[in-house]
Amino acid sequence: MGLMIRDKWKSFVKNKKNVVILLLSLLVAIKIPQGGFRLILWILGGVSTCCLVDILLNRVIRKKKISLQSAIISGFIVSGILDYSLDWYLLVVFSAIAIASKFLIRIDNKHVFNPANFALLIAALFRQPLTWNIESNTYLIIIAGIYLAVTLKKWPHVLGFLLVFSSTFYFSGVNPLNMISYFFLFIMLIEPKTSGFGKGRGFAFGSIAGLMSFVMFKCMAQIDIFVSSLIVANIFNALWIKKGQKNVLKSCH
């Protein structure tokens, strides 16, 4: 019995999306005493909208069945960062935008932007408050985040971000340890499909996000500094892939 449970746990943890979902659920649970019943409904609303739109778009466009783990994660992030006191229709709209962006903004059959982050940028541009309620326990995020960064081989992204973010903020007189969002660093920045692989590219990706966070902090802090910086880093990643493909084609000719 004990062995069976251990095996099941091992196979559960082997899939890193399960670990992320477990972490997000715990973070929401920690916030429930403050957020109450509305927070639970808000998160469930975000997750179910993302799942429904994902199922619908996959059936219509790709005509295939899919795993809903990515949609669940997107739902958690959108609803966990968007303030839960907002109107319900906004949650539905931004959750739907998150999933739709995966299908609409693509390069070479791969989506460009972290879906939840793209929706949150739109929300920020329309002056909707991003209160980051899901960032309820820093220690839990750091412990799980280091595990995810190492096992997903995303530590160059984390290091690049930390180095540039810390130095720019420190030299401008702001304590970087107070300003940093560990949820952004360990959950959003290292999203596998839109952040790219490799030590050099990962480090550059993280550095660009770190630098853009500082630029946004200085120029347009009202548009979330992390959300906007990740958009720029995602564009950089897409351009890098495109450039790499061109070089391969040239060498073939």
Binding site: P129, T131, W132, I134, E135, S136, A221, Q222
Partner: peptide, 15 residues
């Protein structure tokens, strides 16, 4: 009515 911070200001922003 709650007055909330709508600009990310650090680790304690959510509270």
């Amino acid at each position: 009515f709650d007055i909330l911070c709508s600009v990310y200001c650090g680790r304690g922003h959510h509270g």
